[in-house]
């Protein structure tokens, strides 16, 4: 009992000194095919050697919530433990016929479509469980789409801190300035989750983000 009290005391002091939460449930949110799983995989691989899930050019590859527990991340002299929560992409429409263009059979496409609708519902349900959220946006796409607005609006309403990542900056036509001007109140980091470009900048922003976690 005495040991527990002393441990808790020092734990509190330590936390206050560094001013951020040490065990953070970090969600990856965004529209389909923005690169959420690619980013979650890179982080998980960097710090645990294992990936979270599979990636694909076919939209809605992630159709269930995926986790990686106890991911210890160090940046400069800071260290924190994360539970990475990779979520299915949020969309307002899902048409199985779109999957046929990627070579899926009608049966596979219909199954994928059904699972994808469930995935969207699950992603939204999980919003309440996050300590902090990384919104992943494809930097070639229009950032003003309603899915981004809805996700951010819900996070603001729940007072959950947000970091915005403009992904795929390694590809021609990436427009990070457009994302910056759409979200001037947020930190926006341009990265390529696929190549690892600007990941140092991402980790710096991540530790700034978790300072805001209550």
């Amino acid at each position: 009992m005495a040991i527990e009290i002393i441990t808790n005391f020092f734990h509190r002091i330590f936390n206050n000194l560094f001013n951020y939460k040490k065990h953070v449930k970090l969600g990856f949110y965004g529209p389909p095919n923005a690169g959420k799983t690619t980013l979650a995989n890179r982080i998980a691989k960097d710090w645990t050697g294992e990936e979270i899930g599979t990636v694909s050019k076919v939209p809605h590859e992630t159709r269930e919530i995926q986790f990686k527990e106890k991911v210890d991340i160090k940046f400069d002299s800071k260290k924190a433990t994360f539970k990475l929560i990779d979520t299915p992409g949020i969309a307002t429409k899902i048409d199985y016929e779109d999957f046929l263009h990627f070579g899926l059979s009608t049966k596979e496409a219909k199954k994928r479509s059904k699972e994808a609708t469930r995935g969207v519902i699950e992603s939204i349900k999980w919003l309440d469980d996050m300590d902090a959220v990384v919104i992943v946006i494809d930097s070639h796409e229009n950032p003003y789409n309603q899915v981004n607005v809805t996700i951010i609006g819900n996070l603001v309403a729940r007072k959950i801190p947000v970091l915005i990542v403009g992904n795929k900056v390694d590809l021609k036509g990436a427009d990070l300035k457009k994302i910056d001007s759409a979200f001037p109140e947020y930190d926006v980091v341009g990265i390529s989750a696929k190549t690892g470009k600007n990941m140092e900048e991402f980790y710096e922003a991540l530790f700034n983000l978790i300072k805001k976690v209550k």
Partner: peptide
């Protein structure tokens, strides 16, 4: 307005 200012208005 940025998206965020729009959201704040909505909230």
């Amino acid at each position: 307005l940025s998206i965020m200012q729009n959201i704040t208005e909505k909230l």
